[in-house]
Design a protein around this nucleic acid. Structure first.
Lengths: 339, 339
DNA sequence: CTGTTAGCGCCTTCAA
DNA sequence: TTGAAGGCGCTAACAG
């Protein structure tokens, strides 16, 4: 009652061959309705369950997709993965999760393992500087799709938001509130495209509105609350203090606000603040935080869709699709001076 | 350069047999150092990568673990999965994620698919009332381990927190603050053990401290902020209004506090509030919310460990281990009246 | 419509 | 120490 039931077992019982059983199970037209029905019934009765491993080995397709993220327990990545899982599951795929903790080596290991597992594609939000790991994937002819933290490469699809636009509209919004001395706190280094883009959007907005750009107003930190507090301490020790902060992270924005309030500065009157990501907590606060929505759920769904389209299409031409979602400005109390 | 390299390819190149290659690759002692070295080098050179599917089919072990949760993009489940992935990855396992959205049918489907995929174990936080799905798993002799939302069954391990204790210490804490009319907002129905336990802990604490229990003070809702607001409206339309609320969800606690403040009631002076889960946002608020920490990361790690121990041990006796973590009371502003 | 055969990539006896 | 052969469970020609 516990050992595995194979198609041979049910073939034996019915005095037919395994091929017949296989055909019946797969709705193959070349089979009589009577035997098909018989097979299906006994399969049910014997509690048969197909072995996807065998099918995978035979067909060369595992129906598994590998997803690599820095870590899974953040709202952003959790939501992206949720979107991926939902979309893919409906098409019969399963999702294998890997975390890198922003470690390049770990990321390379994960890729290696996923390739060994014969995944049909790899979706990733990369933490790597170089691209050799990715070339390994492409060499294997398996689709690689970036989401959020992409790397610009040929033959690779990606789903991102327009981070430049995100940085731009965030900064423009602060300018519209009357701010003239806008600081920017960036998280991570500029090797990561998304942060480089947000920074570029910030600069462009300043430029377009005839505001000077100052190196002193740009800080690079990690993405923790405490980093936000530290950043504010530094910014407000300058002789020429800023009157607004555009943070590339909601957590840093929160820390910044906490520190500003500790310094008895009014938000948004004295200093307007806007974050990035629309983490749920930004809306729970008494002083709710303005931010940029990245639509992680849609990003995940879209990533899955891009893959599904890609495999549906003729293998002849490799499609590479660069989907760019529009970020959305969400104005809340931390930056709203009522125009 | 792109087609799959198998052990046969490298065998051919070396004029040996695939078996020899296999042995070399697996550090089999029965092989000369020279050929082993040669094989390893050419394998490297030819960019050989083992096919885990084939090994899985051969060995009957896929080295994949299925994890089933209601949904992945919450801090709690995200953190549990993170813990699981970290612990398991170190032992060469990969994690396949499935979401149920609290739907029993979906859960059954997920189990079915995972079994077909020959996962070596299933970890789950169940949304089901009945246990027939689980019996299918056990019949297949593959380990089933519950975490958080368990179902009491034989031959099944589980890792949970002591939800009874959680409900108890939360309620006791409110009593210690001088509250006498303590309401309880439960999320989900009482078919889910964790909520039943928290509720039981609440009642026991009242009983032990000679406080009366009243049905009027117990509400069942979903787990959204809005539900918390609604619950408070109901509770405060009673003639005999409560002076404290123990919510089984942080989100509901937040909604409750918002509504209380809207009603011009002081928290914690007029009404003390405590939530459950220690969602990060509870600590970000100006009026930080007291809560019960469930140690999700540890829970995930422990779940993985229980599994690893289980397979290491002799197969003869099925170990079933019921690990119960101690929840921790976290006192913050929403309930702290300074004794 | 059904049976036979072969093979996906690997490991593991059993011989040599 | 190495080779030969069989099989994990399934599907896909190719026959009949």
């Amino acid at each position: 009652m516990s050992k595995k039931v194979t198609i041979y077992d049910i073939a034996k019982k019915l005095n037919v061959t395994a091929a017949t059983v296989s055909r019946a199970l797969n709705d193959n037209p070349k089979i009589s309705d009577s035997t098909k029905k018989l097979v299906l019934e006994t399969a049910e009765k014997m509690n048969y369950r197909q072995n996807r491993l065998a099918i995978a080995l035979k067909s060369g397709r595992s129906n598994n997709i590998g997803v690599i993220v820095p870590r899974i327990n953040t709202n952003f990545f959790g939501s992206v993965i949720r979107g991926i899982e939902e979309e893919l599951n409906a098409s019969g795929y399963q999702v294998i999760i890997c975390q890198t903790h922003n470690d390049e080596e770990k990321e390379a290991e994960n890729v290696e393992t996923l390739l060994n597992s014969q995944v049909d594609a790899i979706f990733m939000s990369t933490s790597s500087r170089n691209t050799i790991t990715f070339e390994k994937i492409l060499k294997k002819k398996i689709p690689l799709i970036f989401f959020d933290r992409k790397k610009t490469m040929d033959n690779v699809s990606s789903v991102t938001i327009d981070d430049f636009a995100g940085g731009y509209i965030a900064t423009k919004h602060l300018i519209d509130q009357g701010c003239k001395k806008i600081a920017h706190i960036s998280t991570g280094d500029l090797n990561i495209e998304i942060f480089r883009e947000r920074f570029a959007g910030y600069k462009q907005a300043l430029y377009d509105n005839d505001l000077p750009f100052s190196e002193d107003y740009v800080l690079f930190t990690k993405s923790n609350i405490e980093d936000g507090r530290e950043a504010v301490k530094k910014l407000f020790s300058l002789k020429n203090k800023p009157d607004a902060i555009f943070s590339a992270s909601d957590f840093v924005a929160l820390g910044a606000i906490q520190e500003l309030q500790a310094m008895k500065l009014k938000v948004p009157q004295d200093v307007a603040v806007i974050g990035f990501s629309n983490e749920p907590f930004t809306n729970f606060l008494e002083l709710s935080i303005s931010t940029i929505d990245q639509f992680p759920l849609e990003m995940g769904r879209m990533t899955a869709k891009v893959f599904l389209e890609q495999i549906d299409s003729s293998e002849v031409e490799k499609i590479q699709k660069k989907v760019v979602l529009e970020p959305k400005l969400i104005i809340r109390k931390s930056s709203n001076r009522g125009k």
